[in-house]
Design a binder for these strands. Structure first.
Length: 447
DNA sequence: TTTTGAGTTGTTCGA
DNA sequence: GTCGAACAACTCAAA
């Protein structure tokens, strides 16, 4: 009896799951496992809502797997150790997982792979979380792209994998599953989630995709910039935890495009472009792992940020006196999500108006976001700070007031999160934009 | 090797 | 109020 383990990580779904699909077609028994890694949990803020969201995704995945006739095994501990025990207990001869591209995850996976192979286990990893892997989209000279537009042209020219059907577990009638923990609560893992969480899981993600692709995606290019609307896909937490695959999202977008006139194609292309950005920032992190802690362009590591703690606290709490900035931060704090236009505004404000280094903001977003993702978040912050991959002119500094007038002209978004904006309770601006802008320009000019 | 065109999302100033 | 120019020069990618 050929027993295989499928190791779930950021692919918490049954549909279009490359490694799981392969395991289910090649083995006679597939044991799905999820390992809570204390190293990752300890590095995560104890209030991080993404932990609660992930637990909810796991609860639903567990139930979907039970309906499919198998059993999801939970373990807690160092992955290498837990996997060793699992392989021994199940007598599995193969280990399947989808590849992860973050530096820490790469190390973890290399270790587990080496150990498992040394015990004679057939370790099989798959491309799944991206459309094209870091080594697959390179310049003609074999080196990685450093600017997005050229990368995206090359990306679009490449053939892509098809989507796979929902995995069907082989029947494991006489198989004895190994011991499993009960799915822990957030509290048991040492977390305290203070905000209400949106619906999680695979079914909800597929429904959301269908709804978005039956309407707003046709106007995405324009509507996506208006934070008062719910006109973006809102799929980022699902994509982050893998309750939906980026392949499925893109395939659906292309089916929509095929059914509509050329005028809407531009909008659908813009939407697909967002997923190309995701692959782009993954390959940036893969090829240039120093970006996780330092500037993509090392010369900017010498920038003299002021890093005023009092100003940082005001920014975190959404009381800067700049309504669009405060609305964004409060949306983040209250819901675990922030509209992308407002992410750019708040990030640009922290760096260029408060002169606080992008790393502080990056860390705060990672604590609060339901879609907290190292590559995307880091890429976005470095872009905003002007230290990143593209040669964006560093003197392009958002004016938060002008941005609000342009993208929230009636103040609908602002008033949703800052209802006191027109009253005396609302504080005056904590800095003078024009002055701070000049300061920042001078700071960059010194480099 | 050299050359050429281009680079996510903007702001401010002055005519 | 509207519009075009200036904001700097550099790096990247491809021909």
């Amino acid at each position: 009896m050929k027993v295989a383990i499928h190791w779930f990580r950021a692919d918490l779904r049954l549909h279009d799951n490359t490694a799981l699909h392969a395991a289910c077609s090649e083995a006679e028994v597939v044991v799905p496992v999820f390992i809570f890694d204390p190293l990752i949990l300890e590095a995560t803020d104890t209030g991080a809502p993404i932990v609660g969201y992930m637990l909810e995704c796991l609860r639903l995945l567990e139930s979907d797997i039970r309906l499919a006739g198998a059993k999801l095994i939970f373990r807690y501990g160092a992955p290498a150790r837990e996997m060793e025990a699992l392989l021994r207990e199940t007598k599995a001869t193969a280990l399947y997982f989808n590849r992860d591209y973050e530096p820490m995850a790469r190390k973890r996976d290399e270790l587990v792979t080496k150990l498992a192979q040394s015990w004679g286990v057939d370790v099989r990893s798959f491309k799944d979380g991206v459309l094209h892997e870091p080594q697959e989209v390179l310049k003609d000279d074999g080196t990685p792209y450093r600017v997005f537009s050229a990368y995206s042209h090359a990306w679009r020219r490449k053939e892509r994998a098809r989507i796979l059907p929902k995995a069907t577990f082989p029947s494991a009638v006489r198989f004895k599953y190994p011991k499993s923990l009960a799915l822990p609560t957030a509290q048991k893992l040492g977390f305290k989630i203070e905000i209400p969480l949106p619906p999680a899981g695979e079914k909800v993600a597929l429904e959301r995709l269908r709804k978005f692709h039956s309407g707003d995606v046709l106007h995405y290019g324009e509507l996506r910039n208006i934070p008062a609307l719910e006109a973006t896909s809102r799929l980022s937490p699902a994509i982050r935890l893998g309750t939906i695959s980026p392949r499925t999202v893109i395939a659906s977008a292309e089916r929509v495009a095929a059914k509509h006139d050329v005028a809407s194609h531009r909008h659908i292309e813009t939407f697909v472009g967002e997923l190309i950005w995701r692959d782009f920032y993954r390959q940036v992190l893969w090829h240039f792992p120093h970006v996780a802690t330092s500037c993509f362009q090392p010369k900017y590591d010498t920038l003299k940020w002021e890093n005023d703690k009092r100003l940082f606290k005001a920014w975190c709490e959404g009381r800067t006196g700049f309504p669009i900035v405060d609305a964004g931060m409060r949306q983040l704090n209250q819901t675990g999500w922030m509209h992308n236009r407002v992410r750019m505004i708040t990030a640009m404000f922290l760096t260029k108006d408060l002169l606080i280094s992008w790393q502080w903001g990056e860390r705060y977003f990672m604590q609060k976001l339901l879609d907290a993702d190292l590559a995307n978040n880091n890429g976005g912050w470095q872009w905003s700070a002007g230290t990143g991959t593209d040669a964006q002119p560093w003197f392009r500094i958002f004016n938060p007031t002008a941005q609000a007038a342009k993208f929230d002209p009636e103040g609908k978004y602002i008033r949703r999160y800052v209802p006191e904006v027109d009253t005396r309770d609302y504080p005056p601006p904590i800095v003078h934009h024009a002055e701070q802008r000049l300061k920042t320009l001078a700071m960059f000019k010194r480099i």
